[in-house]
Amino acid sequence: MIVLHYGYGVTEVILTGFISAMIQTVAVIYIQYKMNKATYIKYHFNLRITRIYLVYCLPLMFSGVIFFGLNGLERWFLIIYVSFNDVALYAIAFKFALILVLLMQPFGMWWMPKRFEYLSKNGANTTTEITHISIVLLCVLTVLVCYFSPFFIDWFMPPSYQPAKEMVYILAVIFAIKELNELINLGALVKQETKKLLVINIFSTIIGVTMIILLTPYYKINGVLIALIVAQSIRTLSTYWLSQRCFAFPYAIKKIAGLFVISAVAIGLSQYQSTILLHLSNAFLSISTLLIFSFWNQLIIFPITGKSTQITQKR
């Protein structure tokens, strides 16, 4: 805000992000050092252990680098083929759709490291139940973002940025597919098939970038959005296929498909312009329908008990 107030440009704005990241890094290192000192934990280097970790982690790291083709590179092509104003609209819609990722982060920070422990201690059925809950949470948050992001754009952005509302829901769906990929990749990670995950990321990125190159000159931003949806869908479906081959989790596929259909209808309804009262009523009805469907079909089970094995067998 300070940089923008004094009229600095894009480079300075990006620099503020770098400064923020460095402050976070230094703070985390300091906190970690204090915790280790209090618990008498010392760092040590072991070449054999390091080699094992690198074999597992390097493909994931390269996947992140390659994934830039589906999460950043598209803006380079937009700058070439559309106006700067359209790029700004895309950036605003991107930021508001990113709220979905931020809302999923608390759950992800708890579940992503814990799921390996749950699998080893409680088995595949309990792990699958929590994955079902995470998918329901993802659908609910996606619908919420699609309903309320246009309001935030109306309230906080100048009138010239109002067209960004038309892109938010598509970008939210793209982020939802991306988050879904992270929720269902456990089987591949358990069997340490990170190299195959790297191949999937390379393949989907090549498809996405190729479609962006071919579609953007003709369809502009819509071409980019179509390419991202297709590439992310291929990536997620391929990851699901690989993970299930590595470790078969008893997902309730038909019920999850029904959940996705309800979510798609709700997202479609969120795009109709109406009064605030009617819009909020539709949002409440959509979320209620998702939750009722999930509880009725036992995609949400509280508390998770030893009966989970019987429930999963009935599916």
Rank of each mutant, 00 (worst) to 15 (best):
T275K: 02
N36W: 07
I301H: 05
A188Y: 00
M1L: 15
E74N: 11
A266C: 15
I92Q: 01
I221G: 07
N297Q: 05
N185R: 12
F67G: 15
I311K: 06
F247A: 14
R75K: 12
G7L: 09
T205C: 07
I29R: 05
L228A: 07
S134W: 01
C146M: 10
K34Y: 02
K37G: 06
N46E: 14
C246K: 09
E179M: 09
T142M: 11
I2H: 04
S294Q: 08
K254D: 04
F302M: 12
W155E: 00
G69I: 09
Y240S: 13
V26K: 03
G268Y: 07
A27R: 06
G72H: 09
Y43D: 00
E12M: 10
I234F: 03
A27V: 09
W110Q: 00
I256V: 03
F77M: 06
V265F: 08
Q32G: 14
V10C: 02
F260E: 01
S294I: 07
Q273F: 08
T128D: 06
C139N: 00
I14V: 10
I174S: 04
K95A: 11
V10Q: 14
I92Y: 04
V26S: 09
A252Q: 12
F284C: 00
F151R: 01
I206S: 12
I206T: 10
V65L: 12
Y53N: 03
V28K: 09
T127V: 05
L58I: 11
